Amino acid sequence: MAYTGWLASMRTTAARLNLISGIWTPYTPTWTSSTGAAVSLGNGTLEGEYALSGGICRVRISLVAGSTTTFGGGQFRFALPFAAASLGAAGMSYLGTAVALDPGGAYYPGAARVLSGDAFAMALSPTSSTGSTAGEWNASRPFAWGNTDNLSISLAYKPV
């Protein structure tokens, strides 16, 4: 069911209440690459869940790479359960958090963003020691991804 806000004269149904209740609902996000070679989950795991409440969609996405996972040629994109509403000005984004873990114990913090009107989330982090340049995560950023590496995204946005 597509998301629509609660409007006057709408019937109360179980499906409608579930849609706006704030209860976490599982969904399977699609993982794609922005350009170049496609990503492939292989024997990795990808899961997501969302909760709608008060016109806001909260999303959690988790990827754990397997031994046959491939990471593509462009920036990682993760489909949202609902497209994001447009924001007031060009270049504005909905923001959240992202973290990547290399099994050796190194954590890489980042930001998650959804551009105005988009239907996918991307993670990004600084690519320089001063933090002045940010880049979206891909096969080699924030590190060279491999088996058992994982990524988590958490964000909130206004759905269409």
Results as ranks from 00 to 15, higher is better:
Ala89Lys: 09
Val114Lys: 02
Asn150Lys: 12
Arg11Gly: 11
Gly104Gln: 10
Phe82Cys: 00
Thr70Phe: 00
Ala83Asn: 09
Val39Trp: 02
Glu136Gly: 12
Leu87Glu: 00
Leu63Arg: 08
Leu115Met: 12
Ala106Arg: 10
Ser93Leu: 15
Arg16Tyr: 01
Gly22Asp: 00
Ser33Trp: 07
Pro26Phe: 02
Arg60Ile: 09
Phe78Ala: 00
Thr70Cys: 04
Leu19Tyr: 00
Gly74Ile: 06
Ser128Arg: 07
Thr97Tyr: 01
Gly72Met: 06
Trp137Cys: 11
Ala51Ile: 13
Ala83Gly: 14
Thr148Arg: 15
Pro109Ala: 04
Ala112Arg: 01
Thr30Ser: 12
Thr68Pro: 12
Thr130Tyr: 13
Leu151Gln: 10
Leu41Gly: 08
Gly66Ile: 13
Gly104Val: 13
Glu49Trp: 04
Ser132Gly: 12
Trp31Val: 03
Ala119Ser: 15
Leu95Ser: 05
Ala90Asp: 09
Trp6Pro: 01
Ser86Met: 03
Ala51Lys: 10
Thr127Met: 10
Asp149His: 15
Ser132Phe: 08
Leu52His: 15
Met10Thr: 07
Ser132Ile: 10
Ser34Asp: 08
Ala112Lys: 00
Phe82Asp: 01
Leu115Thr: 09
Gly73Tyr: 05
Pro142Leu: 04
Gly110Phe: 00
Leu63Gln: 07
Met10Lys: 05
Leu95Glu: 04
Gly131Glu: 07
Arg77Lys: 11
Arg113Gln: 08
Arg58His: 12
Gly48Trp: 02
Met1Arg: 11
Ala89Asn: 10
Lys158Met: 10
Leu17Met: 14
Ala121Arg: 08
Asn147Tyr: 14
Met1Asn: 15
Ile61Thr: 06
Tyr107Gln: 11
Ala84Tyr: 09
Thr30Trp: 03
Gly22Cys: 00
Arg77Ala: 03
Ala144Glu: 14
Leu155Met: 12
Ala100Thr: 01
Met122Arg: 15
Val64Gly: 05
Leu124Lys: 08
Leu101Arg: 12
Thr70Pro: 09
Pro126Val: 07
Gly73Val: 04
Met92Asn: 12
Ser152Asn: 13
Arg113Tyr: 08
Thr69Val: 06
Asp118Thr: 11
Gly88Leu: 08
Ser86Thr: 14
Arg113Leu: 08
Arg58Thr: 12
Ala119Trp: 09
Ala98Gln: 02
Ala106Pro: 00
Asn147Ser: 13
Thr35Gln: 11
Gly135Ala: 13
Ala85Pro: 06
Gly48Tyr: 03
Gly42Asp: 04
Pro126Gly: 15
